[in-house]
Amino acid sequence: MKKKMNMKLKCFCLVFISIILFRCQGNVQKNKDCSKFENEIYQEVSDTSLAKEAFDFQKYLLEKFGEKSVKGINYGAYHLQFYSSFGYGKSVKFVNKNGVYSIAVKCITKEELYPDCKEYAIRIDKEEWNELERMIYEFNFWTEEDFKTSKDVLDGYAYILEGNRPEAKKCNKKIYKLVGRGSPKYDKIGALCDYILGYESQLKFKYEQSNKIK
C-alpha cells in the first residue's frame, strides 16, 4: 500500500512539474513572439471627419483597382494604393500567407502618364518580405498618426496604406491599421509609402532580369 502511495505521489509530481515547465515555455515563446509589439503606444484619431474621408477614398480606390481590403483576413498583408490627381495610380500588395510570400501590382494609366507601371503577381522570397516588414516597423507604421493631408494642393497625390497582422492578437496589440497621406504633408508615413514604391520597383527590376516578370 505504501509503495502504491509513493508511486502515485511521484506520478503526480512529474505531471505537475511537466505542466509548470510547459506553461513556462509557453510564456517564454509568447514573450519572444510579442517582443516587436511590446512598446507600441497608439494615438487616438483626432479628426474623425478626415478619417471618414480616408476610408471613403480607400473604398473608391479599391473599386478602381478591383481590389479588396486586407482587413479581417487571417494572414499578414500590407497594401499600398497611390493615386494622382491627374488620374493615374498604382496598387502594391504584399502578402504572407502561411509562409508563402507574394507581391501583386495593378496600374491605372492615363494616356502617356505613368508608362513604367506594369501589372504582375509573383512569389517573392522570405527575405524580401522581411525587408518590407523592417521598413514597416522602422517608420512606425503601427503607431504614427493615421491621417494627414493638405487641402491647398490642386495637382497633388494621395497614399492609402493598410496593414494586417493577425499574430499581434495574442499580444493584445492592434491587428489592422489604415493610414492616409495627401501631398505635400510629409512625415514618416509619407516617406514609408515612397520607400515601398521604390522597393517594388527594385523587385520588379530583379524579377524582370530573371524573366519571372515578362
Rank of each mutant, 00 (worst) to 15 (best):
Ile213Val: 02
Glu200Ala: 06
Lys8Trp: 05
Glu38Lys: 11
Glu67Ser: 06
Ala51Trp: 00
Gly182Tyr: 05
Tyr42Thr: 03
Asp152Glu: 15
Glu138Trp: 08
Gln58Phe: 03
Thr143Asp: 08
Gln29Ile: 06
Ser91Thr: 01
Thr48Glu: 14
Val95Ser: 09
Asn140His: 07
Lys177Asp: 05
Gly156Ile: 00
Val15Cys: 14
Glu208Trp: 09
Tyr60Thr: 08
Val92Arg: 07
Glu38Arg: 13
Lys188Arg: 13
Lys4Asn: 10
Glu127Ser: 14
Val100Tyr: 03
Asn140Gly: 01
Phe55Trp: 12
Lys188Leu: 14
Lys214Cys: 03
Phe12Cys: 14
Leu192Asp: 07
Val70Ser: 02
Leu62Phe: 02
Glu162Trp: 01
Glu53Met: 14
Tyr176Thr: 04
Tyr176Asp: 12
Gln209Lys: 15
Gly89Cys: 05
Gln29Cys: 04
Leu80Asn: 01
Glu112His: 09
Arg181Asn: 04
Phe94Thr: 00
Tyr60Leu: 14
Gly180Glu: 06
Tyr78Thr: 09
Ser150Gln: 05
Lys126Ser: 14
Gly180Ser: 13
Glu44Val: 07
Gly66Leu: 09
Thr48Ser: 13
Tyr114Leu: 13
Leu21Ala: 14
Leu21Gln: 09
Tyr120Glu: 04
Glu167Arg: 03
Trp129Asp: 08
Asn140Trp: 03
Ser210Arg: 02
Pro166Tyr: 01
Lys3Cys: 07
Ser210Asp: 07
Tyr176Met: 07
Ala191Ile: 09
Tyr176Asn: 12
Phe141Ile: 02
Leu197Thr: 12
Asn96Trp: 02
Glu138Ile: 01
Val100His: 11
Gln209Cys: 09
Asp116Met: 08
Phe37Ala: 05
Val28Phe: 14
Glu63Leu: 11
Val105Thr: 10
Leu21His: 04
Leu154Asn: 10
Asn164Val: 11
Thr143Phe: 08
Thr149Leu: 15
Gln209Phe: 10
Glu144Asp: 11
Val100Asn: 13
Phe205Pro: 04
Tyr120Trp: 04
Gly156Met: 01
Ile108Trp: 09
Ile136Arg: 01
Asn98Glu: 10
Met1Val: 11
Phe16Ser: 12
Ala77Asp: 04
Ile108Met: 10
Gln43His: 12
Glu127Tyr: 04
Asp152Gly: 03
Asn164Met: 08
Tyr101Leu: 02
Val95Arg: 00
Leu62Arg: 02
Phe86Tyr: 13
Val70Arg: 02
Phe86Glu: 15
Gly72Phe: 04
Ile189Val: 14
Lys148Asp: 11
Leu197Trp: 09
Lys212Met: 13
Gly72Asn: 10
Thr149Pro: 13
Ile124Arg: 09
Gly180Trp: 03
Asp116Ala: 10
Tyr78Asn: 13
Tyr78Met: 10
Gly198Thr: 11
Ile103Met: 01
Glu67Phe: 00
Glu167Cys: 01
Cys107Tyr: 06
Lys106Ile: 00
Gly198Leu: 11
Glu144Leu: 07
Ser84Phe: 00
Phe205Asp: 15
Phe16Gln: 07
Leu113Arg: 13
Gly26Tyr: 12
Gly163Ala: 01
Trp129Val: 06
Ala51Tyr: 00
Tyr101Arg: 02
Ala158Arg: 09
